[in-house]
Nucleic acid binder design. Sequence first.
RNA 1: GCCCCCAUCGUCUAGUGGCCUAGGACGCUGCCCUUUCAAGGCGGUAACGGGGAUUCGAACUCCCCUGGGGGCACCA
Length: 478
Amino acid sequence: MSDIRVRFSPAPTGFLHVGGARTALFNGLYARHTGGTFVLRVEDTDLDRSTGESVEQMQAVLRWLGLDWDEGPYVQSEHFDRHRAVAAQLLADGYAYECFCTKEELEARAESDRAGGRPPGYDGYCRDLDAATREARRGEGRPTTLRFRTPDTGRSTFLDVVRGEVAVDWELVRDFVLLRPDGTPVFYLANAVDDVDLAITHVVRGEDLVDTTHRVLAIRRAMGHDDQPVYAHCPLILGPGGHKLSKRFGAVSVEEYRDQGYLPEALLNFLALLGWGTSDGVEVMTAAEIAERFDLVDIVSSPATFDTKKLEWMNGEHLRRLALPDLVARVRPFVVERHGDRFDEERLVAGCALGHERATTLVSLAEQCGFLFAADTELAIDDESWRRLVGHDGAGELLAAATAHLERCDWSNEGVDLRPVVEAAGQKPRKAMHVFYSAIEGRAAGLPLWDSMVLLGRDSVLARIHAARSRLDGEARG
RNA sequence: GCCCCCAUCGUCUAGUGGCCUAGGACGCUGCCCUUUCAAGGCGGUAACGGGGAUUCGAACUCCCCUGGGGGCACCA
């Protein structure tokens, strides 16, 4: 095992976003690739927004994705004492100072700055108060926040694997909050302290955090640690049109993809290819294969767009690589959810076997198998398919001829072949077969029909065709 | 307003000065296969955002523009 230590540190304020999942993935991949340690740390310093439910959900989703961590979860709120102790030391050493401004005052001044064309942000109002003034402010019962005093001159620099050297003039970095009036630490403090305490060597995260790095590093130095972790800030994942990924464009949480029938290995594979790639052209890989090839230096520097179409294809690829029993196990929950009352394991297995080669998502396969769990007289035929059937020339005659054929044919895969029936009616199988698919499977396209009929049994098939004919007659009269 | 980043087919990307009349994958599309739909096989469509500069030579280096993204919180 190497000394490399990475961490995924989400704020538990909601669902795990696909962008967050990719960050977790890159961290996990790097740990696996290097034989390092993957740490999970919950950054819940904002107690108002953080929820225990979110912590649980994120862990469940990470596990579902197969992203198992080696250490943690460490929960920052359980270590506030440590953060406060560091804050006290920073105050004692002169790196921090007390600020007595109220939120309202800060907002009012920021507003007037904006109006006056001055940059918004803390203005250093309490930066140099003398001891007597501080004492007086405290006496007024004002809230006390602890602020970090950033340097006034010079430059802050750090090394980033994907962007090279990142630098900013300290002059542009405002003094920021370390401790809120209620004594809880803010992200910068907790993040800096915990990275030191957990001996994190590589920080892999989204580029929305680049600019915070200077502050975190400043705290780190003030704590007496001049070393820096290696940073890798990944470009964000965008939605269609190159715009921000938002709910308007579809699913953004990992759970949604899970519920839509995507395989964790497919989503993982797809996410890995978003912002990282190899030059050998191999795209469909197992997690282990990806980990073997993955490296921080190969992270792409431009943002990528989330393309659902490619995810779908990727899912099909992984679906086809599953052994039948495994596939059945994955589809089962989706089928039970839909047809719990009439669920039948043997039929599920048979249906999966028939649909394995053509499936794209677990949901689509579950839906294709649906007719196997329906009562013959209650088979739901989807509207679109029924319209096609009704509109098909000679549909009733075809169904009647099929009944005649199926009543006496040998009940085998060869015997139930309906092509002769279609041809006898002077039609082309390619054009007419949807009539039978709809009557028997409830949809114009589905699992191979001969096998499906054999599976259902003669009585069941005849009953379904009969039901379809009755409905057709009824509509013709009505 | 200020700071930072990014820019190759519709999309993900390969490409690090000549191997590029730019390669692969998804999508789209033509044909084949075919009991439907898929899957599969064989083809096709399609890109270096614009303008300068450096160089014998630029997708690759530099500058400007344009476009997109991120940041400037008592959110992370």
